[in-house]
Design a protein around this nucleic acid. Structure first.
Lengths: 156, 156
DNA sequence: ATGCTTGCAAAACGTTTGCACAGGG
DNA sequence: CCCTGTGCAAACGTTTTGCAAGCAT
């Protein structure tokens, strides 16, 4: 269900990041490029720690602080989105060229499903215009039980 | 805009908590009652640290650990709800006897407005039944600029 | 050349836990 | 009276920061 990313898009995304950095007047460094590359390979949601680990795996020597400093840039560049699932850590997912979607989180087993955000965006616009709020984004999650947990016997 | 709570409801809420504790077979202690009382006096969203501080102010000697252990009980009892605004800390707000609502968060100044959740709940049900997910709750926030920040000149 | 960026380690932060003592049922 | 709940302090995991050295522009 979750959206993998087509490798054909990679060059386009790298270019978008390069342009973003130039536009913001910040440097196009090796570390930042490495982080982008690692991040493009994730299929699902991931957290900073996983980026750090994958960088080590790939033999790229990038420090933890740099990861934490770069992820917000990728968010600002429109390549990633920060998603919070009620845990303390931030999670991220790719958004570049992906259809907008939101998440359903099973309270029992933690599984996460995605669903199309079209209707949510329509509702967002309706509410924002009523309240004179200039909404350009939203966070939306359904919380409950997945089909399996809902029919399974009560926990031990 | 945010929902203050009517003091007339206080006894009813205290009673609800007492019943909740009895039903769960856990003790109705002085510390737990103190925390409930403090929490009822907040008008807006608050975090654990503020509860701790207000307890000190009120001369009630309650430890930090007890606050962190009690807030989830109040959530489970249906008196509070945990709300996350993308920060690392949890925020809480009263829900007992309050109309369901969600939040709009201004990205620039951080101001938070509430809006009625009726339409959101309807949408939640529609999506959940399509996806065979048993949703009994949701998290929803609009993110953008409030009227003031949208018309103000760009930041310094 | 110069100043943003990096990596490291240490600090900060909110939250959780281990433990001996206190207090509710 | 027993056993849960408490307070303290220390541990925890994530994120941020200070700083000297490195590297884009």
């Amino acid at each position: 269900m979750p959206g993998p990313i087509q490798p054909e898009l990679f060059p386009q995304i790298r270019e978008a990041f390069r342009l973003y950095l130039r536009r913001r007047g910040i440097k196009d460094t090796q570390a930042r490029r490495s982080i982008l590359d690692i991040v493009l390979d994730f299929r699902e949601h991931f957290e900073a720690e996983q980026v750090l680990y994958a960088l080590k795996e790939a033999g790229r020597r990038v420090g933890k602080a740099t990861v934490y400093r770069t992820l917000p840039l990728l968010v600002d560049a429109g390549i990633l989105k920060e998603v919070r699932f009620g845990k303390k850590q931030a999670h991220y997912e790719q958004v570049y060229g992906q259809a907008p979607h939101d998440h359903m989180v099973c309270r029992r087993c933690g599984i996460i499903y995605e669903f199309d955000a079209e209707e949510v965006i329509a509702l967002r616009h309706r509410i924002a215009s009523q309240k004179r709020f200039h909404a350009d984004g939203h966070r939306f999650q359904l919380v409950g039980l997945c089909e399996h947990c809902a029919t399974a016997p009560p926990q031990v």
